[in-house]
C-alpha cells in the first residue's frame, strides 16, 4: 500500500508543490494539508515545506507555529509521526520547540542560493536512513535566515547524541554554528534541514538526485515502523 505523506500549505508557502512532487517521485502519495485545518487526514508522515509563511515579517515561522494544523502535528510528532521541516519548515519546527535552537539572519545578510555539498552524519533518522554514514550529497540551499544558532550546551548535546543530521561542506553558506545544516529530535522522527532536498530529485531541474534519499528514507522507515 502506498504511503501517504502530507505536505502543509501555509499562506506564503512556496515550495509546497515541489515537496509534493518529490514525494510522488519517491513513490508515495502526496496529500495536501491546509494550515487552517487541524485534521491530518490519516497521513503517515508530514513535510513542512519552504517559503515565507505569513510573509515571515515577524520571526520566521513564529506565526505558522500557531496554525491549527501545527497543534495536531506537534502532538503527532511527539507520538512518533515522521516530520520533515525544510527551510521555513525547519524554522517552524524550531519555533514549535520540536527542535532546539533557532535560525537567524545569514551572517553576510544576503539571501543566498547555491548548490551546496552536505555531509550526512546521522543515518538513523526517519528521513536519512537511505544514506551511508558520511555520505556527501549536493543539494540546493536558498535562504535569507538560515544561520543555525543554539547555546553551546545544546550544540554539545546535539553532537554527543548524534543529532547533527547534516553539515555544510566546502563553504558555510550562511554562518551556521558548527556548519550545521540539519538536526533531528531525540527520537529521530523529526528532522529540520535548511537546504532543499525537494529541489534535487530530477536530473533536468536539480544539480543532482541526492535529495530523493530523504523521501525514500521515510518510506523505508514507514515499512519498518509499526503501524
Amino acid at each position: 500500500m502506498t504511503a501517504r505523506i502530507g505536505v502543509v500549505t501555509f499562506p506564503g508557502s512556496l515550495d509546497d508543490g515541489d515537496a509534493a512532487r518529490a514525494v510522488r517521485i519517491a513513490g508515495a502519495e502526496p496529500v495536501r494539508l491546509w494550515h487552517g485545518d487541524p485534521q491530518l487526514h490519516g497521513v503517515d508522515a508530514v513535510v513542512l515545506p519552504g517559503g515565507f509563511s505569513y510573509g515571515d515579517y515577524l520571526r520566521c515561522g513564529a506565526i505558522a507555529r500557531f496554525a491549527p494544523v501545527m497543534e495536531t502535528i506537534v502532538d503527532a510528532a511527539r507520538g512518533g509521526l515522521p516530520v520533515l521541516g525544510i527551510c521555513n519548515g525547519f524554522q517552524i519546527l524550531c519555533e514549535a520547540h520540536l527542535l532546539p535552537g533557532a535560525l537567524t539572519r545569514n551572517q553576510h545578510l544576503h539571501f543566498r542560493n547555491r548548490d551546496q555539498i552536505l555531509r550526512i552524519e546521522a543515518v538513523g533518522t526517519a528521513w536519512t536512513n537511505a544514506f551511508q554514514p558520511g555520505q556527501e550529497v549536493l543539494i540546493p540551499v536558498k535562504n535569507g535566515e538560515g544561520c543555525y544558532v543554539a547555546d553551546p550546551a545544546t550544540l554539545d548535546r546535539l553532537e554527543a547524541e548524534g543529532r547533527v543530521v547534516a553539515r555544510y561542506l566546502g563553504g558555510n553558506p550562511n554562518g551556521s554554528q558548527r556548519d550545521i545544516a540539519a538536526i533531528t529530535n531525540e527520537a529521530g522522527n523529526v528532522v529540520g534541514i535548511m537546504p532543499h532536498p525537494e529541489h534535487a530529485v530530477e536530473a533536468l531541474t536539480g544539480p543532482s538526485l541526492d535529495g530523493l534519499g530523504f523521501f525514500t528514507s521515510v518510506l523505508k522507515h514507514l515499512v519498518g515502523a509499526p503501524a
Partner: peptide, 25 residues
C-alpha cells in the same frame, strides 16, 4: 562569502574548495 567563511567553524580552505568544486557552486 569571506564573511561567512570566517565565521564558520570549519576549516579555512573550505571556501576555496567551494570555488573549485560543484559545477554551479
Amino acid at each position: 562569502a569571506a564573511v561567512s567563511a570566517a565565521e564558520a567553524t570549519g576549516d579555512a580552505p573550505a571556501e576555496a574548495a567551494d570555488a573549485a568544486v560543484a559545477p554551479d557552486a
